[in-house]
């Protein structure tokens, strides 16, 4: 059971803490895609964090559309702590989707030490 090595994990207490700014900055800084992974719907430790995140993802997807960036680069999944297999599957799926889309057109900055494949 493994997930692709080109995924970088940023830990947060709840996906409700992820703001639009974080997603956009990640894309701007060279990530080709962003995936939010949080608790199952209705099972948020903090009552509604994952719903807020879902709404926010929709909002950012709209922004991406306006910037002519593929919406598929941003995804949100609900995976509980007991579903390691599902997490790996999702990680592979997301990597495949992003890989098929190619590098993000936003890459204006020259990233000298890019680690991407």
């Amino acid at each position: 059971m493994q997930y692709p090595s080109n995924i970088r994990i940023v830990k947060v207490p709840c996906i409700g803490t992820i703001g639009a700014i974080h997603i956009l900055k990640a894309l701007e800084n060279g990530a080709d895609g962003v995936c939010l992974v949080g608790c199952s719907e209705g099972k948020c430790e903090y009552s509604s964090g994952n719903y807020r995140a879902r709404k926010r993802v929709q909002y950012v997807k709209n922004l991406l559309g306006k910037l002519s960036i593929e919406k598929e680069r941003l995804e949100i999944y609900n995976i509980s702590a007991g579903e390691a297999r599902k997490f790996c599957e999702v990680a592979r799926e997301v990597t495949e989707t992003v890989r098929s889309l190619g590098p993000i057109p936003l890459k204006t900055k020259a990233i000298s030490n890019s680690k991407e494949e």
Binding site: V12, P13, C14, T17, I18, G19, H22, K25, A31, S48
Partner: peptide, 27 residues
């Protein structure tokens, strides 16, 4: 949980160990 920090429109709230700059730097 940090939900208030992200919802605050003027970013006046921050969560210790998980503040805005930290997440951004990590990204």
């Amino acid at each position: 949980c940090g939900i208030c920090a992200v919802e605050c429109p003027v970013k006046a709230i921050s969560l210790e160990h998980f503040n805005n700059d930290l997440i951004l730097t990590e990204c």
